[in-house]
Design a protein around this nucleic acid. Structure first.
Lengths: 159, 159
DNA sequence: GTAAAATAGTTTGCAAGACTAACTATTTTG
DNA sequence: CAAAATAGTTAGTCTTGCAAACTATTTTAC
């Protein structure tokens, strides 16, 4: 395959993927989709011994800027799905922590997500879905290294 | 791996990817990114014997609604990168066609895209990049079949 | 052969998502 | 201790994309 064609195929692939969230547009959930994603990330990736995750760390993990995280956390906090906790050592620091009701919301939403994404996993089969995850982790690694290189000298992720 | 974990991994994968476009945020290009994507699609997928592509078809291919396509075409037309042509047989129909300057813009932008995505392809290597495209085509197939099932009885793509 | 339905595209108005720049409050460093 | 750095927030804005309602044309059904 021609190099240029391959680049175009990659672009088409990424474009097609960007709108995957519509699969599980669920009007019944009481938070926005990006808030739901943040909450799910938090529930699944918060170490059990940890009091919460900092907005700045959430931003890095999800590739979003801090102001964006602030807005999302505001929404979730207003509805009682997360709480903000202050660090008494370093009073600049805030920890975000899901509440019981936040964890419950994630459990409910997961049935919905699992149906759609589960179907995809079934469709792909064990081999290809495993393989996809493996390769996509490498893509993510590439993205992260690229971001680090470009972030020199700027306040934040810089783009 | 637990089924629920796998679903979460897929979600994290998709989320991380959604913002891939920032790689080639190029402030020098004189159109919006979504307009650029439309233009690239048009230039690369318009059969050489065809006078242009209909907005409705563009919408299907790119998974966007017709009003969205209208807006994007307006932007591109205003800057002279595409033209609208009327079908004399069926006067409801419009064809969108890139101009010379539109094709030139795509050629220029491609150097930029090729650098970034080309680096990714190099990073992944021949095997994994080929494999990724193959699996992602299957993901897209799944998405398309899913969309068709849900679109029954609605005006348009329905979500 | 015309009235109703369907189709193609557009206009309008809006909501979600995410950004930058500028700000406050704290902590670290020279 | 003053200056720089860090964490988070606020304010304002831009992009993307949608749904609903509209116009114009063509097809269908009686």
């Amino acid at each position: 395959m021609d190099r240029k064609d391959k680049v175009m195929e990659f672009i088409a692939m990424f474009e097609g993927l960007r709108r995957y969230r519509r699969w599980f547009r669920d009007h019944s959930i009481p938070v926005r989709k990006n808030e739901m994603m943040l909450l799910m990330y938090l529930v699944h990736n918060l170490p059990s011994d940890s009091v919460g995750m900092q907005p700045s760390e959430l931003g890095e993990r999800l590739r979003l800027t801090r102001p964006t995280i602030t807005t999302m956390v505001n929404g979730l906090e207003g509805k009682g799905y997360v709480v903000r906790l202050n660090d008494e050592e370093d009073r600049r620091v805030v920890y975000v922590r899901p509440t019981e009701s936040g964890m419950e919301l994630v459990r409910e939403a997961q049935a919905n997500f699992a149906t759609n994404i589960g179907d995809l996993i079934d469709y792909l089969g064990e081999g290809d879905s495993q393989e996809l995850l493996r390769i996509m982790k490498r893509v993510r690694q590439f993205m992260d290294s690229r971001k680090t290189n470009e972030a020199r000298g700027t306040d934040e992720c810089g783009d």
